[in-house]
């Protein structure tokens, strides 16, 4: 009988914790584990290219369950392809809804052109009908409220949410919602209403202290916005029940102009929101995203940007501001596949125009169909195929990459088509650093839990 042989998975990555422990991660299973300095040499030996043969010791057996070691007859390429196919399940749907395409801000780096206002009543009706007609086959529905500035159309969000909640409750569908908002209209009263409408995750961008933020994220008439946004967030922190479940990702877009202000700003945020796990940071470099001022933007050199993201993130963690949960979910299997590349995801414009991508709204190849008032969708499947079938299957480098199951070569199909370059994620580029930060965040949370237990 042939001796059983185990090989290290090609989807492994490893890092080292601050206390010398080994951190191991697998992008196909999403498992992350740590090993003591005593276990480390045994583990590293088992993960050598030649693998291990025969019966596995108690130390090595868990490596199989987590996917770090795989039987030598397993086709990991087939695993990755199967994972890709699993995105074609028809019982999940993600809709990015633009209740308005207008915005009260005119941010310097914005790529949008704000061609129209509120969603037409017939499009609203079409959306309600579409979800009602799909309900029988759905198990999971997630809605991202987007725009424009979605809070300009707060009443429409309410009207649509009430209908969606009724439909999803009736059909026992797992429903979740999130919102990308500038935070200007996010008053306490409206925040409470949004929570009732199951909007639980909010991305709100603040680009530094008042003088920095107001110089780049200002009102259409030029007025400042910092004080209003911070005032709203302070009220939410002070007045919303401590046990209420939500996450606010404070996104900080940085470039050469505000680079030196990010840490002082994080200090300021930590004073206001530190040690409340619901307020989290999400740092990203400003890019040339297609706006009219692209040529004037003082964007960071990409090497600086890729380092600073994690430097700022860790700085926040040290001050009591957690890293956004987006980061950890981005390294899970399929976690970095863009919505534009997922078969059951659509962007719905205020006029019923259907898109795949939120960042190329004026490009013909992104106009993939139309939502009709009766709830049907008129879809150009050739255009959809362009977004959904690119990525790993046409890129040999992606096929050989440890991160393949997480992004499938499709983190940003738009970046690939515009630049001809591979759209690797910031997480993948600094995976050792990211794994260390996930370990560190875990340590901080455990210490907090211990403190809570001791107090009670």
């Amino acid at each position: 009988m042939k001796t059983k042989r185990w090989l290290p998975s090609r989807f492994n990555a490893m890092s080292q914790a601050d206390n010398g422990e080994l951190i191991l991660y697998n992008s196909y299973t999403g498992a992350i584990a740590t090993f003591t300095p005593e276990e480390k040499p045994i583990i590293l030996s088992a993960l050598k290219r030649e693998g291990v043969s025969g019966e596995l010791s108690d130390t090595l057996l868990p490596l199989v369950d987590s996917g770090f070691l795989v039987p030598d007859d397993v086709d990991e390429d087939a695993r990755a392809r199967f994972l890709h196919q699993s995105l074609h399940r028809t019982d999940t749907m993600h809709l990015i809804v633009m209740p308005t395409e207008a915005c009260n801000f005119r941010c310097t780096y914005c790529y949008q052109t704000f061609p129209r206002g509120n969603m037409n009543p017939e499009v609203q009706e079409g959306l309600k009908q579409f979800i009602a007609q799909k309900a029988n086959s759905l198990q999971h529905l997630s809605i991202s409220w987007f725009g424009g500035e979605p809070m300009l159309a707060f009443d429409i969000i309410g009207e649509l949410s009430e209908s969606i909640l009724e439909t999803t409750a009736k059909h026992n569908i797992n429903y979740s919602a999130e919102m990308t908002t500038n935070g200007y209209f996010l008053t306490l009263e409206k925040f409470r209403a949004l929570l009732n409408w199951h909007v639980r995750r909010f991305m709100i961008t603040i680009d530094g202290m008042k003088e920095f933020h107001d110089a780049r994220r200002f009102l259409t008439g030029g007025g400042g916005t910092f004080d209003t946004i911070i005032g709203n967030l302070k009220a939410i922190k002070a007045e919303i029940d401590k046990d209420e479940d939500f996450e606010i990702y404070i996104r900080i877009n940085f470039d050469e102009d505000n680079l030196d202000n990010v840490k002082p700003f994080i200090d300021y945020l930590a004073d206001l929101f530190g040690n409340d796990r619901r307020f989290q940071t999400f740092c990203r470099p400003v890019g040339r995203w297609g706006g009219e001022h692209d040529g004037d933007l003082p964007i960071c050199d990409h090497r600086v940007a890729e380092t600073k993201i994690w430097e700022f993130t860790e700085y926040g963690m040290d001050k009591g501001l957690p890293m956004s949960s987006i980061v950890e979910s981005a390294i899970m299997p399929t976690g970095s596949v863009c919505y534009a590349a997922k078969p059951h995801s659509f962007v719905i414009g205020a006029n019923g125009q259907l898109y795949k991508c939120t960042c190329s709204l004026n490009e013909d190849f992104n106009h993939v169909g139309r939502l009709l008032p009766d709830g049907s969708m008129d879809i150009d499947y050739d255009k959809v195929a362009f977004w959904v079938t690119g990525g790993e299957d046409k890129d040999a480098n992606c096929q050989a990459c440890f991160f393949r199951p997480a992004c499938q070569g499709n983190h940003c199909p738009l970046y690939r088509v515009r630049t001809g370059k591979r759209p690797c994620t910031f997480e993948k580029k600094k995976i050792k650093q990211v794994l260390r930060l996930i370990w560190k965040q875990n340590q901080i949370q455990e210490a907090e839990q211990l403190e809570t237990i001791e107090r009670s």
Binding site: N26, A31, A33, S66, G67, S86, P333
Partner: peptide, 15 residues
């Protein structure tokens, strides 16, 4: 070995 994140199946991942 301490597990920070458990392994999940392709079906769970695709939710």
């Amino acid at each position: 070995m301490k597990i920070l994140k458990p392994a999940i199946s392709p079906q769970q991942a695709a939710n």
